[in-house]
Nucleic acid binder design. Structure first.
Lengths: 182, 182
DNA sequence: CACGATGGTTTCAAATTAAAACTATTCGAG
DNA sequence: CTCGAATAGTTTTAATTTGAAACCATCGTG
């Protein structure tokens, strides 16, 4: 997933031990690649990996501290450290000085990070559809106001029709057209 | 992301050279883990990684053949092979004997795979919001019927209100409750 | 029947990940 | 003031995964 890295000067690469450093260094060289990346690949690249998405989910659940994330996810501290650094570098999370009186920083979602909510809901709904036995209990996303489950995500056209993949196509930037959802 | 693997008998693990084999072998042992996996982690585990999601996107775009995916994504053939195998194993894609007369099989999305459409749309819309300069051209997902861009995905409560992360919470299976979207 | 196209698998070096050990800071108790 | 526990990381090192290239197999064609 990171052909960019290979293109880097090895010496520079090795000098950069952390994910953050690598990303920062590659940023300049990456631009040309980014330009060629489609609207799906670019966000994926920013998120980083599955762990990051689970961190974001935990953040939506109100977790804020390094230790909370680590306990919740059960991942190695160095990995968590790298992932948080990446999320910070991409502006998906940010650190805030403190909340209670503790001397540590906390990690909270930025607006960009909160923008991932529909993605997580889509993931969850897909999971509910296909990864649980019909009788299997699972957590439910409910309306905080009345406790009722939320509806399914629906994609609607301008005229209000609910549309699926087969009803849509992609239009390339310069008046040319393609099909599908690329 | 795969603490399951570590728990495996190393000999068995090494005997399984391909992603598919590993997954099949782990499946039995994995069950207990799966049960503890939340509705977000479980789907993530099934998809596998970013490449897989890009393969699915390409499949929505109409690509069906090994070579087409490889050319489109530019990934190594062994990796593509492993990812396709994984997608097949998880029932996200399936092989069909042929379409034109060619003697090769084709890879197409199953219903489960097509269920990923909202996820990809969410990813794309997030990308549009935060990864493109305001003036930067990007592909647009449009209604096939009239060429107009589709609306944004919206999560609605039973009463029709559009709700965000802050308006929702998760309800755990057994009448207990938590907050957030876990 | 040689040959190119397609669809993979194997091999092996390089990169990444994970676990554990280690460091550093703060806070509270004695 | 000092010891020790808690928090938040970093470093080290081995195991695992990845990716590029080479290799292999099958089909259709000239």
């Amino acid at each position: 997933m990171q052909p960019i890295y290979r293109a880097l000067d090895r010496a520079v690469f090795r000098a950069a031990s952390t994910m953050k450093s690598v990303r920062q260094i590659t940023m300049a060289k990456r631009v040309s690649h980014r330009d060629s990346m489609c609207g799906v690949a670019r966000p994926l690249d920013a998120i980083g990996d599955w762990w990051s998405l689970l961190i974001v989910r935990d953040a939506f659940d109100g977790l804020r501290r390094f230790g909370e994330f680590q306990k919740s996810l059960g991942l190695a501290k160095n990995i968590l450290s790298a992932r948080l650094r990446n999320l910070l570098a991409h502006g998906i999370m940010e650190t805030v000085p403190a909340a209670d009186g503790s001397p540590y920083q906390e990690y909270v979602l930025t607006e960009k990070g909160r923008g991932l909510f529909p993605l997580l809901v889509a993931l969850r709904q897909w999971g509910e559809d296909f990864f649980f036995e019909p009788d299997e209990a699972h957590v439910l996303l409910v309306d905080r106001k009345n406790g009722l489950p939320v509806r399914r995500l629906e994609l609607r056209a301008q005229d209000g029709r609910v549309v699926g993949a087969e009803d849509t196509m992609v239009r390339l930037p310069q008046a040319s057209a393609g099909k599908g959802i690329a």
